[in-house]
Amino acid sequence: MSMNSKAASAIVLFLVVLASCAVRKSEPVKGTYFQPKNSTVARGEQLYMIHCQKCHPGGEAGLGPAINANPAPQFLKRFQVRHGLGVMPSFKPEEISRADLHAISKYMKQWKHY
């Protein structure tokens, strides 16, 4: 295989994985309970409930798209929250402080790997 076709198949594989990735994530679906591993994650979950849950319930799609399977690094997701690309509202530091946004990130990360 040439380098290019290897890269192409990597992309195809990646897209397939993305499409079939475990978008659904919840206690009944996983069959185990979610335990925040520290107080930051616990706080992050509470903040997620206040600011994000209504459009991305449990990280699954709802009004907005699913974000559970999104492989983007957390800093890009924080960028999305601050700048609200597309129709998603942006959240300025007065609404979600830097520390709070990091807590949300930490929660999303544990939730994603739960």
């Binding site: 990597a10 992309i11 990646f14 897209l15 993305l18 907005g64 798209p65 999104n70 492989p71 983007a72 690094p73 890009l76 999305q80 690309l85 597309g86 129709v87 998603m88």
Partner: peptide, 16 residues
């Protein structure tokens, strides 16, 4: 890989 990741983010955002 990085480009695809970015593209999927950008693709989604704007899809609504």
């Amino acid at each position: 890989f990085a480009m695809v990741v970015l593209a999927t983010m950008v693709l989604h955002t704007g899809c609504y």
